[in-house]
Design a protein around this nucleic acid. Structure first.
Length: 421
RNA sequence: GGAGGGCUCGCAUAGCGGCCGAGUGCACCGGUCUUGAAAACCGGCAAACGAAAGUUUCGUGGGUUCAAAUCCCACGCCCUCCGCCA
């Protein structure tokens, strides 16, 4: 949630943010109004309550007739307190509802616009010229099949669309990617974490995934728990309701991720670009808000290092305001070149959520002036299926074999993946 | 799934209707003493809103009462034992 002080003192900042995100602006004024009403009700309640507390104390001390008279008074007051209290909680709930509908205040450096209005920051590596090499690149589905690495047909048979098996070299590739990712993260000072992927509503709500993203979240009705779409959720909630010390704290979470992919019918139906379940190594930082911007760039740097090590051509984009999640003020995506699509596709992403999540999750740090919400940031180190796609397609040879990036060789044990058909 | 026990300020515990936002010990911070340290002693030490007064918070939500950490109800979580199972 945003800082109410900003809203009270500078509502135009909030209006502008909502506007460039393409979100409801009118909720800002509804919140301002609700906030004033709630605060008025609160102070009315507090005044009455103070009176009641004082009166109550005198009842305890009084005797006889005096006591009877006081009790009469107190009874009346008690009912007024009760009424004031329920009015207060009603208005506070209303205000909170509006508050939760407002997204984090956009970074003014983020490009304004929709999905298409991203800004390319840099391009790293050059796409291969398969034509001059004398062959048509195969797509990852085909390569995965001949290498016996990816089995989407049986995935569909057993689990439905957007499901797959990683087998043999495919499975080994996942282990290699994850091991390489975790060992680089540990070198960079991250604490490796294997978090729960089944979380309660507070964790889900706190990280902001039950707003606009709710339709993509799996919910297990019977037990009222959610399957996380990213380990960002359990990592952020790890310090829920705590006052943390020794910032920055950096975690590298490895977990399965679950996504309903609602509203994506017909999009990326082939292969494992868009799937319901995949594994991912995610970086997550808790940090002093003043350092959030610098940390964002550091996370991006780690993502770039990983992609460079995969020897895959990619570009970095500055995602436009209308395409950001509600918690993020700015987001950088790394997009790998996918030869058979002739396009760059998102493989990793890093977001600066400033204090937005920490406010909801009640995660604070202490400084000379008291306690304040921390900033949280997240970034993908590796999302396994998409990285496998990028590696297979970019490093394929004419005979259908695939060269393994040097960085992965120690973890995989081979230099080349060879067709076993 | 069955039977019990428990949830109080970082940790451990006291409190069982008004004198309790709450005692004690440990931890922590500051000081005295000491060549230095330990010990001892003295002082401080939960959080939120608020300019302040004040209000709120003893797992959560509801109820009884003039008044609830304390009584009642529901839920959640944790622990122990039994059953089942990876």
């Amino acid at each position: 949630m945003i800082d109410l002080k900003v809203l009270r003192e500078n509502p135009d900042v909030v209006r502008h943010s909502q506007k460039v995100r393409g979100e409801d602006v009118s909720v800002v004024d509804q919140l301002i109004d609700a906030d004033i009403k709630a605060r008025t009700a609160l102070s009315e309640f507090e005044t009455l309550r103070a009176e009641q507390n004082a009166l109550s104390k005198s009842v305890g001390a009084a005797k006889g007739d005096e006591k009877t008279a006081l009790l009469e008074n107190a009874k009346d007051l008690a009912s007024r307190v009760k009424a004031a209290d329920s009015k207060r909680s009603e208005l506070e709930a209303q205000a909170r509802e509006y508050l939760l509908r407002i997204s984090n205040l956009i970074d003014l450096d983020a490009p304004v616009g929709g999905e298409e209005d991203f800004k390319v920051i840099e391009e790293i590596g050059k796409p291969r010229d398969f034509k001059s090499e004398g062959f048509e690149p195969k797509d990852h589905v085909e390569l995965g099949k001949t290498l016996k690495a990816i089995d989407t047909e049986r995935g569909a048979k057993v689990a439905g669309s957007r499901s797959y098996y990683l087998t043999g070299p495919g499975a080994m590739l996942e282990f290699a990617l994850v091991n390489y990712a975790i060992s680089s993260a540990v070198k960079a000072g991250f604490i490796p974490v294997i978090p729960p992927v089944l979380v309660n509503p507070a964790a889900m709500e706190g990280t902001g995934f039950l707003g606009q993203a709710a339709e993509n979240v799996y919910h297990l009705e019977e037990d009222d728990v959610y399957l996380v779409g990213t380990s960002e959720v359990p990592l952020a909630a790890y310090h829920m309701d705590e006052i943390v010390e020794n910032l920055p704290i950096r975690y590298a979470g490895y977990s399965s991720c679950f996504r309903r992919e609602a509203g994506t019918y017909g999009k990326d139906t082939r292969g494992i670009i868009r799937v319901h379940q995949f594994d991912k190594v995610e970086m997550f930082s808790f940090i002093n808000p003043e350092e959030a911007k610098a940390e964002h760039l550091r996370l991006l740097e780690w993502e770039k290092d990983f992609l460079k090590a995969m020897e895959v051509p990619f570009r970095v984009i500055d995602v436009a305001s209308g395409d950001l999640g509600s918690s993020a003020i700015r987001k950088f995506d790394c997009e790998a070149w996918i030869p058979t699509q002739g396009a760059y596709r998102e493989v990793t992403s890093t977001s600066n959520c400033t204090e937005f999540q920490a406010r909801r999750l009640n995660i604070r740090y202490r400084d000379e002036n008291g306690t304040k919400p921390v900033a949280t940031l997240n970034g993908t180190l590796v999302a396994v299926p998409r990285m496998i796609v990028a590696i297979l397609e970019n490093h394929q040879n004419k005979d259908g074999s695939v060269n393994v990036p040097k960085a992965l060789r120690p973890f995989l044990g081979v230099d080349t993946l060879v067709s076993s058909l």
